[in-house]
Every structure is written in C-alpha cells, then in structure tokens.
Design a protein around this nucleic acid. Structure first.
Lengths: 159, 159
DNA sequence: CCCAGGTGGTTCAAATTCGAACCACGACTT
DNA sequence: AAGTCGTGGTTCGAATTTGAACCACCTGGG
C-alpha cells in the first residue's frame, strides 16, 4: 500500500480534544447524577428514555442508541429493578419480548434527577458556547451521527 | 428553589447526539485498534503519548488528560509491560517517581497501529465534515475543553 | 404438523474501571 | 536530625462492561 494517510497537527489535536471533552463531560455528569439521585449515567439514560416513550419500552428499543451492549442493558435494568425504579413485564404480542416500565418511584426519582442534570448540561454545553457556535456544533454532530449510523463496517471504500 | 432550568428540544437532542457520536466513535476506534494491532484504545493512547514525548514520560504526566483514573493507568501500563511494549524504570531525580518508556517493540507496534488509526479518524471525523465545519468543530472543542478544565467543581453559580 | 433459521433477552466468565486505602519518599519546620 | 504534611504510584475489593454461549420463541417452508 502506498503512502499511508496522516493527520495534520490540527486534526490530531481536535480528535484529542474531542476525547478529552467527552471524558470530562461524562465524569461531571456522572458525578452530578450520583450526588443528586444516586444514579449512574447509564441508569439515568434508561429512565429518561422510558419517560420519553411515555413510561414503557421494549428492551430492544431501549438498546437503541447503543450507549451500552445488550448484556449491559440487561444488567442495568436488573439494577434498576432491584431498587424499584423500573419493572419488567412480558410483551403480549411477542412472548419473547420484555417490556421495561417506569414505576411511580421511578418517575419521581427521574423528576428529581432531571432538574440537576438539565442544569449541568445547560451550564457545561450550552452556556459555554455562543448561539452561533452551538448551532454549528449541533449541525456537525448530526452529520457525524448519520455518517456513523450509515456504514457499520466500511469494508469497501467504494464511493 | 424557583423554576428549574430546562433544556430546549434542540439542546437536548444535541446533547444526546454528542453522547451517541462519542460512543460510536469509541466503538469503531476500539475495534480498529483491536483488529490491527491487538491494542485497546486506552493502551494506544498510552503508547501515543509516550511517543509524542520522545519515548518516555512520568506516570503523572501520562495521567494528564485524565482519560482514565490513576489506578486505571497503573493497570494499563502493567498490561503493556506484560506484553513488552513498554518498560518501567525509576526516576533519578525523585525516587518516588516511575518513568514509563517505549521499548523497541512498543515503537514498532505503535507505528503499525498508527497508520490504521489515522486513516480511521481521518475518515470518520475529517472527511465527514466540510473544512468550514471542521474548523467550527475544532473551535468549539477548544472552548469546551478550557471551560471544563477551569472549574473542577462549580459549587457556586455566581456569574 | 414439524423443522430450519433468525430474533429477543439473559447468563456466564473474563477484562476493565473506579475510588479508597496504603506505602514510600520528598519538602519544609523546628 | 526528627516530625509533619503533601505527592507519586500501587494495590485492593466492588461494580460494571463486554462478547460469546445459550434458551425460548416466532416465522417461513415442506
């Protein structure tokens, strides 16, 4: 193979900044959720998704954005079940299916955690940027997201 | 406390897109490194930092951008030592210190992994965006990074 | 009806992660 | 020189993560 591709300093620096920001943001959010509501970030995500879907969702749908693996999801839902924030019931139309749903306790815990979470994200991500920057950032993420979704395993470089 | 802050749909969606992109990118990179060179992403980061510093660095410096905790770093360096990619020697000027350094094998493994890594990051992050988008993205990350570094624990919301 | 193949979820073992506790040493006081 | 405090790294146990193996069930074809 010919001359392999290299990244410019700027490109490399950007990539590293992305990693650093990502790691730091996660750390902060994790800490806030832990302190405010005793939840881990993955757990909060589960609750939030359930709430966004009206309170119940099939496991597969929950696994959607793949913030975690299938088994990881099973584990977290298991933890949330132990603490009584969600419950499981089987799916009527498909006996294999399992539906996770928010309990009353789950709803209220989520409500509590959500305020602090929104405040933190607002502070770290929104307030830190100008409206213009935020718009550009948002657009870039959309682009990247769809690009990433598209080619799971780009074996072929064919255009 | 008065009316808690809420995020707009757009803001929330952006935050979620960030999480998704971050998670997906990590997954891809992890897979490439594993396939190409049998390294995990944290391990690659260690090698890359060592190389960037000329081949050796103190543990503390390595822990720098906090992609992992102190103990996590100890663990990974331990793994790399087992496979012979790095070595440890004590620091002359400070007996507490430990200096990790790249072995010859480490250099060559890194060289191999680096090409594929650069290609992948180039493809997923650089090629996916217009030059203009990339510039904006880069600027935003710089802003966020410095903002995150600044206030470790924003107890006070004072403006 | 029965079988092959695919999907939805869980379970298992192994690897990794984190924070807390810990040890050894340097720096500064007295 | 002894004492105290802060720093650099490692070690420990507990929690989490992952992919692979597995089981139960649906779907389509004989």
């Amino acid at each position: 193979m010919a001359d392999p591709r290299w990244l410019t300093d700027r490109q490399l620096k950007t990539w590293q900044a992305f990693l650093a920001v990502s790691s730091q943001l996660n750390r902060r959010v994790e800490q806030q959720l832990r302190d405010d509501a005793g939840l881990s970030h993955p757990q909060y995500e589960v609750l939030a998704r359930l709430a966004a879907a009206g309170g119940a969702l099939r496991m597969t749908e929950l696994a959607g954005a793949a913030l975690t693996s299938k088994s990881g999801l099973s584990y977290q839902v298991g933890q949330l079940e132990k603490t009584g924030l969600v419950g499981r019931r089987s799916c009527e139309s498909d006996d294999r299916g399992v539906i996770a749903f928010l309990t009353d306790l789950g709803w209220s815990q989520l409500r509590e955690a959500a305020a602090g979470h929104a405040a933190l994200v607002g502070e770290l991500l929104v307030d830190a940027l100008t409206a213009e920057q935020f718009g550009a950032f948002s657009a870039v993420l959309d682009t990247l997201e769809s690009r990433l979704r598209g080619a799971e395993r780009p074996q072929r470089t064919a255009v």
